[in-house]
Design a protein around this nucleic acid. Sequence first.
DNA 1: CTTGACGTACGAAATGCTTCGTAGTAGTCT
DNA 2: AGACTACTACGAAGCATTTCGTACGTCAAG
Lengths: 129, 129
Amino acid sequence: MSKPQDLPRPTDAELDILAVLWSRGSSTVREVHEALQTRKPAQYTTILKLLQIMAEKGLVRRDETQRAHVYQASRPREWTQRQLAGDLLQRAFGGSARAFVLGALAAKRATKEELAELRRLLDEYEEGK
Amino acid sequence: MSKPQDLPRPTDAELDILAVLWSRGSSTVREVHEALQTRKPAQYTTILKLLQIMAEKGLVRRDETQRAHVYQASRPREWTQRQLAGDLLQRAFGGSARAFVLGALAAKRATKEELAELRRLLDEYEEGK
DNA sequence: CTTGACGTACGAAATGCTTCGTAGTAGTCT
DNA sequence: AGACTACTACGAAGCATTTCGTACGTCAAG
């Protein structure tokens, strides 16, 4: 009985690719490769191989009906982000949401607008709960 | 010109060990090993090797004056937490503090008390800024 | 039909992480 | 001293990650 939610945590390189797929939507290897050239140059086949591995792991889905296969993230950005946040929250912060948010704020130096946004977020969250 | 702040991101196994050092303070290999037995059983020499590697990387400091060397985390818990939070914030959330906190809340299902605590946190943060 | 462009598949090297066994050293007890 | 025990050091295996080269297939010009 395996939950379909169970996906391996994406590695660093895989996360870079997911970021492209999230922002571009379904893409060919070439498109992903080009999108990454500025931030993280790599050979075309490197990206290809990574996408193949990610497809095996279930991190992306592949449409093979076209000659150039089309890849898309198998989970929406928010879902994966939640997994990663929850994972780090447990592993590094012992489950303390307080320390977690404090860490984020300290790392980010949030602006006044962002702080306001966060308050609104807390309100909404408390409502919906 | 290398900043002394530059430390590699601890791996999963290393983070487990750091957690022990943070909560126990300076410890021998044996103490770390025993503390981990419940959560993550491993041979004694596995922990020893990890601590040796972590010392090389600068993640821990080693006091060799005793026969049983004594290890301590080279950075306080909060410092490392901030690094990790900032790292994930950049890599997975594109720097958006909003998505980051939302991810944490969604992953955690924070209690009413925690939410109140977080509001207080935002207030304090805005003050001190 | 041959060539070139463009695509996938795959093997494999380099590196990093994790684990553990073995060897050797130093102190302790009888 | 000899046997035991508690350490550290180190090599190496097994696995994952990352990177890339090479082989091979397909399609469209020329």
